[in-house]
Structure formats: C-alpha cells, structure tokens
C-alpha cells in the first residue's frame, strides 16, 4: 500500500523533474540570454540570494500580514452577517437585493477607491482583501447555519437560551466544520488578492518584489519570486487541508461539496 503510494508520488514528480532538466540543458546549450527566462540553477541561486539578504523574507512578512489581517476582518464580518442571515429568514430576504448588488463587484475594482481614500500601504490592501473574503464566508456560513439539524434549534428554544448563547453554544459548534471549509477557501483568496494588489499598484510585499525584479531585468530573481509565491500558496493550502482533517475529520467532508 505505502509502496504503491510512493510509486504514484514518484510518477507524479517525473514530469516536473524532466521539464526542469530539459530546460536547464537547453539554456546551457544555447547560452540563453533573455529578459524573461532563466535556467533553474540560476533561479535557485537568486532565491538563495534573496533569502540571504532577507529581502524575500521581509516581502513575505508584508504580504502575509496584509493577507491575514484582511482575512481576519473579512471572516468576522462575513461570519456575523452569514449567521444573522442564516438565523433570520426575514433579514436574509430583506437584504437579498443589496447583497446581490454589491457581491459581484470584482474586489480589484475597489483598488482605486481604496487608493484615494487610504493611500498606498497596508491599510488599503487589507480593506480590499477583507472585501474579497467577506462573500465566500457569508454565503457558506449562511448555508451552514441553515442546514443545522432543526432539533438542535428546538433544544435551544426549549432551554430558553438567550440569543447570544444560542449562537455561541449551538449554532457555531454545529456549523463549524463547514465554516472552516469557507475559511480555507477565503484564505486562498486572501493570498491571491494580496499579491494581485501588490502587483497592480501597492509598493510592498511579494507582488511588488516580483514587479521590481521584472523592471530591473532580473529574470532569475523574478522567477525565484514566482516559485516562492507558488510555494507559499501551496504550503498554505496544505496547512489548511491538514488542519481541517485534524480538527473535524469526516465532518468537514460533507461541507466540501457546498
């Protein structure tokens, strides 16, 4: 069983390795001179260099700080609205048009508004990330609250729990596995939006780093940033998937289809 899985993994690694080797060989054979490509060995050297002078670490910290701050704010707002809409059908129906009118605005379109209101820096990036994260959390937590076993709600009514306790003791624990799925999705979105804002305009973090490397005609450094951004995206995803399985086991899987 384990050898089979190891074999599968080895097969999966074959293609990327072959591509990298072929590219390295081709770049050496042709003495590649390019503003947009660099052989893998140079990319690794550039990545090591960026680690050695801490520039990529500072950039990572800035990006992750903005992404997580925005994610936290977006989660709190999205969860509050999602739970409220999930509990009260009246509220949900009354707000429907408003939500549907604001939700389709692409988060990046808010960039110029945030720019003139807040200027460059962390704050405008955090606001845009938060806006992008609110919607998936709102929609999925609303669905999660609605799908709570009705008998649980009856119990809470029979116990005459006050509203705050009902939310805290019954609704959040019951809906938590599916809320975590929403959180996982939003974390991915947060990173994407943060990097996108930095690439488009904000002069900080990994996005600004990769743009700077491009403008300095350093393809090795640019691709090193690209690889690093990809690695962070991958690691974040793995981390959250593992956390989901550890925390909720099978319970979370039911929410994945939502």
């Amino acid at each position: 069983m384990t050898t089979d899985r190891a074999k599968e993994k080895a097969k999966a690694l074959l293609l990327p390795l072959a591509v990298l080797l072929a590219f390295e060989a081709w770049a050496r054979a042709t003495h590649l001179q390019s503003d947009s490509l660099a052989p893998p060995s140079e990319i690794i050297m550039a990545l090591a260099g960026a680690f050695a002078d801490f520039s990529i670490l500072t950039a990572t910290r800035d990006t992750l700080f903005s992404a997580f701050a925005g994610l936290a704010i977006g989660t709190v707002i999205g969860l509050a609205l999602g739970i409220a809409f999930g509990i009260s059908d009246t509220l949900n129906r009354l707000m429907e048009v408003t939500v549907e009118a604001v939700r389709p605005i692409p988060s990046i379109a808010l960039l110029p508004i945030a720019l003139i209101a807040l200027g460059f820096g962390y704050r405008m990036e955090i606001v845009i990330v938060a806006f992008a994260c609110v919607w998936p959390i709102l929609i999925l937590s609303r669905a999660a609250v609605r799908s709570i076993e009705p008998r649980l709600m009856e119990v809470s009514r029979a116990l005459r729990l006050p509203a705050a306790q009902r939310v805290w003791k019954i609704i959040i624990p019951a809906a938590l596995p599916r809320i975590f799925v929403a959180f996982r999705l939003s974390a991915g979105i947060a990173l994407i939006v943060a990097v996108t804002v930095e690439i488009a305009i904000n002069p900080l973090g990994l996005g600004a780093g990769i743009m700077l490397a491009q403008q300095a005609l350093r393809p090795d450094l640019m691709l090193a940033y690209l690889v690093w951004i990809g690695a962070i995206g991958y690691a974040l995803n793995i981390l959250l998937v593992v956390a989901q399985h550890r925390l909720f086991g099978r319970a979370a899987l039911s929410g994945d289809s939502a």
Partner: peptide, 13 residues
C-alpha cells in the same frame, strides 16, 4: 494554488 496574477510580471517581460 499559485496566485495567477504572479504570472503578470513574467508575461510583461
């Protein structure tokens, strides 16, 4: 999971 916008600088280059 790669943020696709990170490909923009490469495409510009």
């Amino acid at each position: 999971p790669l943020p696709v916008s990170a490909i923009i600088p490469v495409a510009i280059a």
